[in-house]
Design a binder for these strands. Structure first.
Length: 274
DNA sequence: CGGGCGGCCTGGAGGC
DNA sequence: TGCCTCCAGGCCGCCC
């Protein structure tokens, strides 16, 4: 579900509720997520620990604890994190309950169970198998035209799939890859290795603009995304091509086209994107 | 090796 | 009402 703007929105919405709180207990109701949850490790590392900050890396949320460990959560396609009173009965898809010292709980809810949750010592974060191969953050200076030129060199992968490759650049999923290429005016089928520096500059800028705009609007609630306080995002109203097959292009009025690339829907305008 | 596909899950939408 | 197919924000293992 959530791409960078949704994960970032969730991070910001949770921070005021969780910073300074102590985790008093952890309940694992359903350990069978994408990666089996190690309930023993979670309880051992989290119980009695204070949450000092929340960071985001790629689409992962990192809850930093006073103990120099981080609770890592990935939301997969349908994951939600909600702060709720402990007295409210848990839903069938509330798989993990983090009890807090203020009588509330942080609840991990995930219908499809593609999410992940594990604990890592701060020192071993960068070397962790899930983090080691991650690409650049779109807002980092490292995410530059030169970087994309270098990474794409010789590659024949379509630029849309290249942007969704987390070993190149992180946080970009199907919605924002489509949107950024529309804004940049680039055909999603173009081989990444054949794009020149000036075009990468436009793609880079479009990606940042689209992601920043989406964060400002609280993310995209396409079907069921909500932030940590249960609020929907309003970027769906701003989508230029994603999910708009057959509707008029906002640039030229031509019908938005839908094709399949690497098994995922791609939306683009054949007239505005070359 | 680079790149594509199927699979992991559940549920909603739409056709008949 | 039901039953079927298709589709969905991510990611990885496997295959050519």
């Amino acid at each position: 579900m959530p791409e960078l703007p949704e994960v970032e929105t969730i991070r910001r919405s949770l921070l005021p509720h969780l910073r300074g709180r102590v985790i008093t207990q952890v309940t694992v109701r359903q350990p069978a997520l994408r990666e089996r949850v190690d309930a023993v490790a979670l309880r051992r590392c989290l119980t009695g620990q204070r949450i000092v900050d929340i960071h985001r890396r790629a689409k992962y949320l990192l809850f930093h604890l006073a103990s120099q460990h981080a609770l890592v959560i990935h939301l997969g396609m349908t994951g939600r994190l909600l702060i709720e009173p402990a007295s409210r009965p848990a839903n069938q898809h509330d798989h993990l309950l983090f009890h807090l010292d203020d009588g509330r709980q942080l609840r991990f809810h995930d219908v499809r169970r593609f999410g992940m949750c594990f604990v890592v010592a701060n020192g071993s974060l960068a070397g962790h198998p899930r983090f080691r191969h991650l690409g650049v953050e779109p807002f980092d200076a490292a995410s530059s035209p030169d970087y994309f030129v270098r990474r794409a060199r010789g590659g024949r992968k379509p630029v849309k799939n290249f942007l969704m490759d987390g070993t190149v650049v992180v946080g970009v999923g199907n919605i924002y890859a489509n949107e950024a290429l529309f804004v940049a005016g680039v055909n999603p089928k173009t081989a990444a290795g054949r794009i020149r520096r000036a075009r990468w500059g436009r793609i880079c800028a479009a990606l940042r603009n689209v992601l920043e705009d989406a964060i400002d609007k609280g993310g995209t609630s396409f079907s069921n995304y909500v932030d940590g306080e249960g609020r929907k995002g309003y970027f769906a109203l701003e989508l230029r091509v994603y999910g708009r097959a057959g509707e008029p292009c906002k640039g030229c009025g031509n019908q938005v086209r839908r094709i399949i690339q690497a098994g995922r829907s791609t939306f683009y305008c054949t007239r505005c994107q070359h």
